[in-house]
Simulated assay, not measured.
Amino acid sequence: MDPFSPPPFSILLFLSVAGDTLWGGHFYRFHPVVAMGMTGRILERLFLRQDASGLVQRWKGVLLVLGVVLPFSCATALLLVMLDRAGLGWMAGALTVFWGYQLLAGRSLETHVSNVLEYLEKDDLAGARQSLSRIVSRDTDRLECSGVIRGAIESLSENTNDALVAPLFYFALGGIPLLMAYKAVSTLDSQVGYKTPPYRDLGWASARLDDLLAFLPARLSLLLLLLLFGYSASKKRRTTFKTLFREALSNRLNHPSPNSGHSMSAFAVLLGIRLGGGASYGNRWSEKPWIGFGRESLTIEDLSGALSIFRKFRWSIFIMAGCATAFLSCWRVWGGAV
């Protein structure tokens, strides 16, 4: 066996998950997401025209998506294939692991929300508001303690899918090129995927494609969260797993997004709280349905509990990835195909 040949993809995937679980990706000048954002901003300035018709702007939005997704996805695929054909499969494998754990953002998300908790534990509400403003788009300058906690839990629960489950889903499905494509769409959605001017039409394609790509992973997130933590939560709440499952399913669509409410609903029933209910964006109040049937007034213990669930969820995925890798490796050794 060639010692410089790349290991099976299952091992590369596991090493990427291990990197995110143990260390987490760190943003730097040439980080793929930073480059995607810069490319998106350049094309946005090129395509955004206030006097253009809605239809024209939507077609420009399609070109915006293609102009960011295709270069990163296709260039990555081409580079990995060229390295492999040049006998540098080990380098292609190293890049796969490096980019993989950089684009899985579970540890990064936990760190940002933990910063909010640390400020609250020190009774520094101003610091907590400022820290929260880095991860949410709502107005945070006048939020009370419960509102800060609600915003942090909503960001953590909503992004459980966007930062961890969905990227891992597409990484496993199509390797780094498909993961790059998903992250490019997600980055564009966060930049231009708004229903308000001037992005209503230009961001339409980015928002719809992001909804489509997140559809299956969002429902998988809800299912995994309930299967992993539902039984212990039902005992703590003195109810049944069936009741918790029914509550989560009945609330999962109480969100403007077709996907964001799924993981939020899971967190709400696991913690016994209510999320949603509206927030202020650009000094304008936006009313939203409630998600969950529990308490409206939230405490620091609720945020700590949400972080505990998320931390255990990340480690559970790490363990499941390790078990799957061990199984596939044994299958390979025994003459099967990975």
Rank of each mutant, 00 (worst) to 15 (best):
P217K: 03
L188F: 13
Q102K: 11
A324S: 12
W204M: 05
K236I: 11
M91R: 00
A18V: 15
A326F: 11
A321P: 03
L249D: 08
S131Y: 04
A205I: 06
L48P: 01
G278H: 06
P167Y: 04
R314A: 02
S10I: 15
H112F: 08
D141L: 09
S73R: 04
L225K: 00
L249E: 11
A184V: 10
S133H: 01
F215H: 08
L66C: 12
R314F: 01
S263N: 11
L168H: 03
G203F: 03
V81D: 12
T243Q: 15
S316M: 14
E44N: 10
K60E: 11
G193H: 09
R58C: 10
H255I: 09
L48N: 06
S114N: 14
F241W: 10
G87L: 07
G277C: 05
S265C: 04
F171A: 05
Q130H: 08
M82L: 13
A248R: 02
G174I: 10
V185M: 05
S157G: 06
T243G: 04
I42M: 13
H31F: 11
A268E: 14
S114M: 08
V165N: 02
G305K: 00
L120H: 01
W285G: 02
S260D: 13
H262E: 14
L22G: 02
G93L: 09
T39R: 15
D211M: 04
T299F: 05
V33I: 13
V56G: 00
L220Q: 08
G127P: 13
V33L: 06
V62K: 00
F293Q: 08
C74V: 14
W99T: 07
L143D: 14
L132V: 07
A207P: 04
L298W: 08
L143K: 13
F241N: 00
A52K: 03
N115W: 07
L95I: 02
E121H: 04
A266L: 06
S280W: 10
H112W: 09
G151R: 05
Y101H: 13
G292V: 12
L270V: 13
D141H: 14
V333W: 07
S131I: 09
H262W: 13
Q57Y: 01
